[in-house]
Design a protein around this nucleic acid. Structure first.
Length: 488
RNA sequence: GGCCCCAUCGUCUAGUCAGGCCUAGGACACCAGGUUUUCAUCCUGGCGACGGGGGUUCAAAUCCCCCUGGGGUCACCA
C-alpha cells in the first residue's frame, strides 16, 4: 500500500448520475492499479437537498458496479467520519485561524443587498461579483460588529497575482486572481460551504489526487489558494472531460436517462455499463472496444484521458449490452433475465426454478436476439398465451397469407407432425420437415411462414422446431388448428 | 458577456507530449452483398474526418499564432 489516496465525494442530492459512476470508476482504477487507497466521502453540505435515501442509493449503485472503497461512511476508516455533516467540528477552528491571519474576512452584507448588487451588475452587463464592501473593514470594526451580534458570512480574501494549476489531464492552466471572486467559506449560520469543506476534508484525509469532472476546473484556483493560505500543499488535480448529451451539453435528464438505476432497470448488464463508462474519455488501445474491468484497471492512467467532452452514444451502449449478453453463459443469462420474466407476470420464481431446463432453453433461443435483459419477456410472450389466442403481428399474418395453399399445408403438416415419434430432437425433426417440404415440391417459406405465424404470431424468431419442442406437441398442434381458422 | 477548457469520420476514439512509419487505424450507426426456414447472430465490402487561415520545417493531424465553432463556469448549490 502506497500513500496514494484518491476519493470520490458525491453530494447525496438525487439519483446516481452516470457521470458520478465514471468519475468513481476512474478514481478507483487509479488507486487500485497503484496500490493506493480509495475513499468515499459523502458531501452532504447542503442540508436542504441532501437525503439519506440518496446517500444509500449512491453507495448501493457504486457497490453494484463493483467499485469498492477502502474507507467510507459504511465501512469506516482511520479518518472517520466520512459523512461531511458529521465532520463539522474542525471547520470552525480552521475558519477562526484564517480570519486571524487575514486570509478570510467577515462579510456583514445581507443576502438582499448582495442580490441587488448582482442585479445591477447584470443589467450593466458586467460579470456579477462581490463588490468588496466588507473586504477592507478594519479588524477592530469587524470584531466589534461581530461582538454586537450582527450576522456575518466568512469570505476568502483572494490575493493579488495569478495561479497556475498543473492539471494531469490538461496541463498547465492559469487563472488571474482578479477574475476570482472573494468566495464564501461559511454562511451566516456558520455552516461551511462546499469549496471550503472539500479542501479541509481532503487535507484531513490526506488525499493526494483529485480526479473530478471538468465543471470543477474553475473551482480549482480557489481551492489551491486556500491550501496555500493554510500553508499546505494542494493535491494533484485531473479534470475529466464532461459526458455530453445528444445536444452536446452536459449530460442531463433532458437529453436522456442519466441515472444508473434507469439503465439497470432497462436491463443493461453490469459489465456493459462499466465497459461503456470506461470508453467515455478513455480508450484501451484504440482497437479493442470490449474489455473487462480488470483490463481497465491494469491499463488505466489519468494521462491517457481525453480532454474533449464525450457525447453519450446510446446506440453504442446498446450494442455493447447486446454483445455482453451474447457472450454470457446460458445459466447466467437465465438468472439475469428471470426477474424480468417474473415482473412481466409470465412465470413465478418457483415456476422458473421448477422448470429451469425449459426456461434455459427459452432463454438460449433469445440470446442473440435481445440487446437488453428487459426485452426478453416481450420476445417470448407468445409462449405464455393461450393456444387459441396467440397474438398475430400484422407482418406475421401478412407473410402467412401470401401463400394461397397455407391452410392445406398447415393441415398436412399437422398430420405429419402427429405421426412423428415422440422425443425426437428439434434438429432431427427440422431435417425431416425440410425433406418433407422438398418432397412435396414446395419452397420452405410456404410452410414456415404460416407455421411461424400459427406458433408464435411473430414474423421472425428462433427455430420453429425449437418452438414446437418448447411448446410441446399438443400445444403446437392446437395452435396450428386455430391458425387454420384464423388464417382462412 | 468575462474567465477557463476543448477541436480527427454523424458518434466513441487511435495517432498529437518525443513532426516523417498516416494515400489517418479501430468500433458504433448507416448502406450493399453472403450465410439462414424467418428474425437475429455471423462473415465480406462500402460510405465517412485531421474546422478555416497563416506560419516554423526538407517534412505538420502532430509545433506556434489568429479566426471560427462547441462546451464549462460565474450562488450564503455542489
Amino acid at each position: 500500500m502506497t500513500d496514494l489516496r484518491v476519493r470520490i465525494a458525491p453530494s447525496p442530492t438525487g439519483t446516481v448520475h452516470l457521470g458520478l459512476c465514471r468519475t468513481a470508476l476512474f478514481n478507483w482504477a487509479y488507486a487500485k492499479k497503484r496500490g493506493g487507497t480509495f475513499v468515499l466521502r459523502v458531501e452532504d453540505t447542503d442540508k436542504t437537498r441532501s437525503t439519506r435515501e440518496s446517500e444509500e442509493a449512491i453507495l448501493e449503485g457504486l457497490r453494484w458496479l463493483g467499485v469498492n472503497w477502502d474507507e467510507g461512511p459504511d465501512v469506516g476508516g482511520p479518518y472517520a467520519p466520512y459523512r461531511q455533516s458529521e465532520r463539522a467540528g474542525g471547520h470552525g477552528v480552521l475558519i477562526e485561524e484564517l480570519l486571524r491571519s487575514g486570509s478570510a474576512y467577515r462579510c456583514f452584507c445581507t443576502p438582499e443587498r448582495l442580490a441587488e448588487v448582482r442585479e445591477v451588475q447584470e443589467k450593466a452587463k458586467e460579470t456579477p461579483r462581490y463588490d468588496g464592501t466588507c473586504r477592507d473593514l478594519s479588524p477592530e470594526e469587524s470584531q466589534r460588529r461581530a461582538d454586537a451580534g450582527e450576522p456575518f458570512a466568512v469570505r476568502f480574501r483572494i490575493p493579488d497575482g495569478a495561479t497556475t494549476i498543473h492539471d494531469l489531464v490538461r496541463g498547465d492552466v492559469t487563472f488571474e486572481h482578479k477574475e476570482i471572486d472573494d468566495w464564501i467559506m461559511a454562511r451566516r449560520d456558520g455552516s461551511p460551504t462546499y469549496n471550503f469543506v472539500v479542501v479541509s476534508d481532503d487535507l484531513a484525509m490526506k488525499i493526494t489526487h483529485v480526479f473530478r469532472g471538468e465543471e470543477h476546473l474553475v473551482n480549482t484556483p480557489k481551492q489551491t489558494l486556500l491550501y496555500q493560505a493554510m500553508g499546505q500543499e494542494p493535491p494533484r488535480f485531473g479534470h475529466l472531460p464532461l459526458m455530453l448529451g445528444k445536444d452536446r451539453k452536459k449530460l442531463s435528464k433532458r437529453s436522456g436517462d442519466t441515472a444508473l438505476g434507469d439503465y439497470i432497470a432497462n436491463g443493461y448488464p453490469k459489465e456493459a455499463i462499466v465497459n461503456f463508462l470506461c470508453l467515455q474519455g478513455w480508450a484501451l488501445d484504440g482497437e479493442t472496444e470490449v474489455f473487462d474491468v480488470d483490463t481497465f484497471v491494469e491499463n488505466f492512467d489519468i494521462e491517457n484521458v481525453q480532454k474533449a467532452g464525450a457525447v453519450f452514444d446510446i446506440d453504442k451502449f446498446r450494442w455493447l449490452s447486446a454483445d455482453t449478453i451474447r457472450r454470457m453463459g446460458i445459466p447466467e443469462l437465465a438468472q439475469e433475465v428471470a426477474p424480468f420474466t417474473v415482473k412481466a407476470g409470465q412465470m413465478s420464481e418457483s415456476d422458473i426454478a421448477s422448470r429451469q431446463d425449459w426456461f434455459q432453453r427459452l432463454v438460449a433461443g433469445e440470446q442473440e436476439r435481445i440487446e437488453l435483459f428487459s426485452e426478453f419477456p416481450g420476445r417470448v410472450a407468445s409462449f405464455f398465451e393461450a393456444d387459441d389466442a396467440v397474438t398475430y403481428a400484422d407482418k406475421a399474418e401478412a407473410g402467412a397469407r401470401k401463400h394461397d395453399a397455407r391452410i392445406e399445408i398447415l393441415r398436412s403438416f399437422a398430420e405429419w407432425l402427429k405421426g412423428r415419434e415422440a422425443g425426437e430432437s428439434p434438429e432431427d425433426m427440422a431435417g425431416a420437415a425440410k425433406a418433407w417440404v422438398k418432397d412435396r415440391g414446395l419452397k420452405f417459406p410456404a410452410l414456415f411462414q404460416p407455421l411461424r405465424c400459427a406458433l408464435t404470431g411473430m414474423a421472425g424468431g428462433r427455430d420453429l422446431f425449437d418452438c414446437i419442442d418448447l411448446l410441446g406437441r399438443d400445444s403446437a398442434l392446437a395452435r396450428i388448428e386455430t391458425a387454420m381458422t384464423r388464417l382462412a
